[in-house]
Design a protein around this nucleic acid. Structure first.
Lengths: 205, 205
DNA sequence: AATTGTTGTTGTCTTTCAGTAAGCATATGA
DNA sequence: TCATATGCTTACTGAAAGACAACAACAATT
């Protein structure tokens, strides 16, 4: 569908955009390709627009848009704070181990929600089909009974199901081999699980 | 950290950007807020830059960038074609039921990979901890033994584990209640599972 | 009391930048 | 063969847009 040259141009646009966060002007395109005229760049852009891979907003500077980008939902950056059941004693200690960028609609959380992610270690939630190595996405909010939560219980953080019995909240593992955790002193809920991402080639059991 | 007014300005920038795919000019900001001068907009932008929430590229038009956006990995749009084990007889029939935008690094697939997603229905893969309602992300590539694949077997599409025994490939469910599927006529692999996304409030067992 | 930050105003100046007109050579398909 | 798409060139225009100077009122610190 696209010619060789048009492909090169599109490539340049994408690269420029990811590097600089904005689109090149026609003169910058001209310079990059070594054109003697900016009109060459303009006509190429026109061709790309006719083929639907870009959209132009007439009269405005650097006003090129990739159509996919427009009907995309808003992307949020979910920071990965670390592994669960390992450290993270204080809430401010944000051992940011990377980020997870995903559109907000896929998570099913409101735009205002504060979210973060933790990597699961261990198999205490295996009966809820949460595997070791999975990445759980949590929202900072009040837990309801039955929610899966990351909680700081007596100094250690774990992922468990939040249960209330006789007005007494405690944590329940989803694995017969693990006991219930009844808080001795404190029970601080750090987040409520809203989504889960399993990734990589490690899909082999 | 930000003042009321600066918050409003940032809000406007984000909204304008998601709506139009590009940044407003200082004069557009001026007009939106009803300033009598564009310098007001400029000085606000300067303040936002000093506080680190935006970056400006001097001399260029509409050259405002959100810093997070810059160190973000490239976002790919994974189309959701439909439910597994339901329809999707032909490969071209793309009942696009929405999209999943996620940064490519989180998926662990090469940039060139062709990916798509399917919503799982049924519990035949429950022992691999894939639940009904989960969204599996698949890549178009050759399966290796042990991979979880979406396959068209004798006219129907299912998600199963790809096994080879005595040089004979067949499909295996991860649930004792389901039998192995040995292809009678044909076995077309539609994609190899590379990631899984479980979302929504339905985290309650 | 002096300084700095916020939120503005009236101006002017200059560069960036998109857009157009007119032309030319080579392909590709009808 | 005639039309149409591609891939360029030179030359010009005018609007879009950033940048700066100078000033002013008001808060919050130092």
């Amino acid at each position: 569908m696209l010619t060789e040259r048009q492909q090169q141009l599109l490539e340049f646009l994408k690269e420029y955009h990811t590097n600089n966060g904005l689109m090149p002007s026609t003169r910058e395109i001209q310079e990059f390709f070594g054109f003697a005229s900016q009109t060459a760049a303009v006509s190429h852009l026109r061709a790309l627009e006719k083929k639907g891979v870009i959209q132009k907003v007439p009269g405005k500077a650097r006003a090129l848009v990739f159509p996919e980008q427009l009907d995309r939902e808003e992307i949020v950056d979910v920071p990965i704070y670390g592994q669960i059941a390992a450290g993270m004693a204080s809430e401010t200690e944000q051992a940011n181990e990377g980020c997870l960028s995903i559109d907000i609609a896929s998570l099913g959380v409101p735009r205002s929600a504060k979210t973060f992610a933790l990597k699961v270690r261990g198999d205490s939630m295996i009966d809820a089909h949460i595997m070791s190595g999975d990445c759980v996405i949590l929202e900072l909010k009040e837990p309801r009974r039955g929610d899966i939560v990351a909680a700081l219980i007596d100094g250690e953080t774990t992922l468990k199901r939040y249960v209330i019995n006789d007005g007494m909240p405690y944590l329940q593992a989803e694995n017969e081999l693990y006991p219930d955790l009844v808080p001795v002193r404190e029970l601080v809920i750090q987040g409520v699980m809203v989504a889960l991402l399993r990734r990589g080639e490690g899909m082999v059991a």
